[in-house]
Design a protein around this nucleic acid. Structure first.
Lengths: 154, 154
DNA sequence: GTATCATTTTAGGCATTGCTAATTTTTTTA
DNA sequence: TAAAAAAATTAGCAATGCCTAAAATGATAC
């Protein structure tokens, strides 16, 4: 076995010149959700939504602030900057594509959210695009889905 | 947004009574691969295969040893115990299902391995089963794949 | 305006898993 | 069998991101 291409999970996650870690992506996506209507969110709301304790949210928000993805001052409100907004929107879009795709192929509803939240950090743009194309394909060819469902019953 | 079900990536990865962390799964899967023919492997071979440095492999192997997944003594060979073998086999099986599925829907060959290695730690058994069923479905209905490919061209 | 309450921050700790440097053990070679 | 080389271990550090406890700040009520 001279195949030099394997890595551990962490090895892969580091290797890429990922601008954002998985956690950063989670925070950014959630900030985008929460501030979509009102234009802002707060540490408390954010930490509750993500089921982390406030100090964890504070630290991450400070970090995202240093990266110029959002605007934040101590004890203040969290407002996405243009770049952060753009990323957040993409992240949410990606999330929705993956979720829709999993639903299509029959993933259990109970685990759908957790599944999507985990997977979304690990898929390449190309593969997400494949998911997207498959969704569009099924929309135009609903008979395929029916055949698949029948196949599964057997 | 009172939905209490979101978590950060790490939140999800911890939450489950996961016997094995993502890294543990990687090591176990690789040990299984490497010892499949010969019945054993070594720290050096393992660390090279996973692109980590030997001390990292030593530590993880010791940990897996404490979990009774493998048999190991200082400076010795690594031999999977029954439980470790069973898990390793399942992990490799899962890996292959996911890889085959991604290939089917058209994931880029260059990123296929990395993609699979990352995703495999984040999918539920049910979803992997969906992948498996889809593969079987396409095998029995190759016309669907042709239609999908044609659809993508447009 | 001050006391209370809620929110947020700071400080410090923990677990994981990677790394390097130095040491120990094993294997090979001469 | 003794010296050299290779392999593996130990020890200690780093980064990430979570936590708790205590302090600081802000908002509210009287």
């Amino acid at each position: 076995m001279k195949n030099n291409n394997f890595r551990t999970f962490q090895g892969y996650m580091k290797q890429e010149e990922h601008l954002l870690s998985a956690s950063m992506e989670d925070y950014l996506e959630m900030i985008y959700r929460l501030s979509k209507d009102t234009g802002f969110t707060r540490i408390n709301e954010l930490s509750e939504a993500l089921n982390v304790h406030p100090p964890s949210a504070t630290r991450m928000v400070q970090k995202l602030g240093l990266m110029n993805l959002l605007q934040y001052e101590r004890y203040g409100v969290i407002i996405l900057r243009a770049e952060g907004k753009k990323l957040g929107e993409l992240l949410l879009l990606r999330h929705n594509i993956i979720e829709a795709f999993f639903r299509l192929i029959g993933a259990k509803a109970e685990t759908l959210l957790a599944e999507t939240e985990k997977v979304e950090h690990t898929l390449s743009d190309e593969t997400v695009k494949c998911f997207e194309q498959f969704i569009a394909f099924i929309e135009e060819n609903p008979d395929v889905l029916i055949r698949f469902k029948n196949f599964k019953v057997e």
